[in-house]
Design a protein around this nucleic acid. Structure first.
Length: 561
RNA sequence: GGGCUUGUAGCUCAGUCAGGGAGAGCGACGGACUCUUAAUCCGUCGGUCGGGGGUUCAACUCCCUCCAAGCCCGCCA
């Protein structure tokens, strides 16, 4: 069926579901959901440049979930550009919204998550009810406001992922007069505004005014409007306070007059107003907006503003380590943190998959995600098996996932990279990768450099998860307590290593030596892991020792250093 | 209570739009490599496609219903 229903309303659940409109090009079989969306956008015959928008309120943490808003739009923008369109991707920071409750966690300038108690929470608490752009940056790191701090983080994230996006401050759109005309139209059509929104919100009655002035004395937003003079573009108000969740924040009682630039539209009107002033053609949004905000926005755009809403797309939320993301509970991870663990293209791949399916982003099993990306890359280069659908998806989506399609890249398997991370020695890493056949004589230097970056990330992953790859070669001799026969066997093994043998030979000799001395093989390995890692288990020992400096290995086996 | 979305192997996911073979990777198990020790290779096991009903020659796929989770249905965004 078509995504357009009889009254012309587009079902946001349909767009991007591969069941959508085929755009009349006769090829409804798209391998990549962004092509489906692009079809729907082209079907509107939009003016150039095509505008794609996303946006969030800058509360709490700029986390990986917020990034849906940017990266889903990015894929559609990239597809449209490839089809020859000029595209602007904008992101609105809805920063004229009022701070309504204190977040429990924040992200500092480096993207690291900190507790509210680690910043000046008291100073922040005094700003409840004020727009984010009027609240000082709690980190005092040079940003103009709390909102600017937040926006800078998202902007840095977009840059880190190579996504060109124009950050737009909602407050700016009011301040520079961009919204003036549309605010005037909303207030002139206040009856229609009330009727339309009243179908969605019970609170809207005949006294409802679709504008929230900001108090010139205390800076709080208020909904207590006394009178509106549309011609003069003035709103008379009383600063009587504002509801915030289950609480009510008292205003200062001041009575004054606000211009259309000194206040804001309620969100339900503001969203359609943004569509109009920015000329938005496509906007993805989370499932939370699908049932309330979107249908009311469609009606407001048509009935109040007299405009068509953009092409919508609902994306399913993903979970983090199996549970919903939650800023208030601190169950979040930032893009910066994730990029410490995986390459940007792997994260982009995560978002390139079906937006309609609930996914899990599992930090503990990032190796699986990376493996899947590696398969995706091989599939693009025709090096994978006969899975035609996966191959078709890879062929279409891969160029949008990587910065540059480049042959000859080397991807070390993620867990192998974690093994290499056990030793902090570049030459060791390269040599071991060579021995395993990942690098050859023909591997160019740039490919080796790129591949080694994954080692650093896998190392941080092993440390963060403290998993079975979190071993570290011990520079000092660990405490140990071996039986006499184990010690004798270690002496033998030391002699063997001293004679000069490669890793494979050492691996075999470990077994032989254990047997000669009537030592359980398992016990002997355990002794080796104790000496080198201060653990009972570890990586494949012989090959590993074969790459270390021979003298060091011999001394350590003899427990001399 | 009503609406929307999601539910496929132990885990992560393809496949559902357009009905016909239940799949991949990882894990587990087994084996190979002069070698039980996480990086190589081969193989095996593993699913009543959330449950039930219906339509059909044929249903993971379409329809109905029930279950579970998330979101929306107050305000706000």
């Amino acid at each position: 069926m078509s995504a357009d229903s009889e009254d012309g309303t587009i079902d946001p659940h349909e767009v991007g579901s591969r069941g959508g409109d085929d755009g009349g090009d006769g090829d409804a079989h798209h391998a990549f959901w962004a092509d489906e969306v692009a079809d729907a956008v082209e079907a509107r015959d939009p003016d150039e440049p095509i505008v794609i928008k996303g946006g969030v309120s800058p509360s709490g943490i700029a986390h990986i979930g917020n990034f849906n808003e940017i990266i889903r739009g990015y894929f559609v923008a990239a597809v449209l550009r490839e089809r020859g369109h000029e595209v602007r991707q904008v992101f609105t920071s809805d920063d004229k919204d009022a701070l309504r409750k204190l977040p429990r966690t924040l992200a500092d300038t480096d993207g690291d998550i900190v507790e509210l108690g680690d910043v000046n929470a008291g100073a922040l608490g005094q700003n409840l009810g004020k727009p984010y752009t009027d609240i000082p940056d709690p980190f005092e790191d040079g940003h103009d406001s709390y909102a600017a701090h937040f926006a800078a983080l998202l902007s840095a994230d977009a840059e880190a992922l190579g996504i060109p996006v124009e950050m737009v401050s909602n407050t700016e759109l009011y301040a520079d007069g961009t919204f003036d005309e549309v605010v005037e139209r909303v207030l002139r059509n206040a009856d229609a505004a009330r009727d339309t929104l009243g179908e969605y919100q019970d609170k809207v009655d005949e006294d409802y005014v679709p504008f929230m002035p900001q108090c010139s004395e205390c800076g709080m937003l208020t909904q207590d409007v006394i009178e509106v003079d549309v011609d003069a573009r003035e709103v008379h108000y009383r600063c009587s306070g504002i509801e915030a969740g289950d609480r009510f924040m008292e205003g200062c009682g001041h009575e004054g007059v606000a211009s259309f630039r000194e206040g804001k539209l309620p969100w339900r009107f503001e969203w359609p107003a943004q569509w109009e002033v920015l000329g938005v053609d496509f906007e993805p949004f989370g499932k939370d907006h699908a049932e309330g905000s979107w249908p009311s926005g469609v009606d407001i755009a048509r009935e109040v503003l007299g405009n068509d809403p953009p092409v919508p797309m609902v994306y399913e939320w993903f979970t983090l380590n199996g549970e919903s993301l939650s800023s208030s509970e601190g169950h979040v991870v930032t893009v910066q943190e994730v990029l410490d663990l995986i390459e940007p293209e792997v994260l982009r791949y995560f978002f390139a998959r079906n937006p309609k399916k609930a996914k899990d982003f599992d930090i503990e099993r990032l190796d699986q995600l990376v493996n899947e990306f590696d398969r995706f890359e091989r599939a693009y280069f025709g090096e994978e098996g006969p899975d035609e659908r996966f191959a078709a998806f890879a062929e279409r989506a891969y160029p949008f996932v990587v910065d540059e399609v480049r042959e000859g890249r080397v991807r070390l398997p993620y867990t192998f990279a974690a093994v290499l991370g056990m030793v902090d020695d570049r030459e060791f890493r390269i040599q071991l990768a060579r021995d395993e056949g990942h690098f050859t004589e023909d591997t160019p230097e740039w490919a080796i450099e790129d591949a080694l970056e994954r080692v650093e990330r896998a190392r941080r992953w092993a440390e963060r998860c403290d998993n079975e790859y979190n071993y570290r070669l011990q520079s000092e001799l660990p405490d140990h307590d071996f039986d006499a026969d184990v010690e004798a066997a270690l002496e033998d093994l030391a002699d063997f290593v001293a004679d000069g043998h490669d890793g494979e030979a050492i691996q075999g000799e470990i077994y032989e030596t254990a047997r000669r001395h009537d030592v359980e093989v398992g016990d002997f390995f355990a002794a080796g892991y104790r000496l080198f890692f201060d653990e009972t288990q570890g990586p494949r020992l012989g090959e590993f020792l074969g790459e270390l400096e021979r003298e060091f290995v011999v001394d350590r086996l003899r427990r001399e250093a």
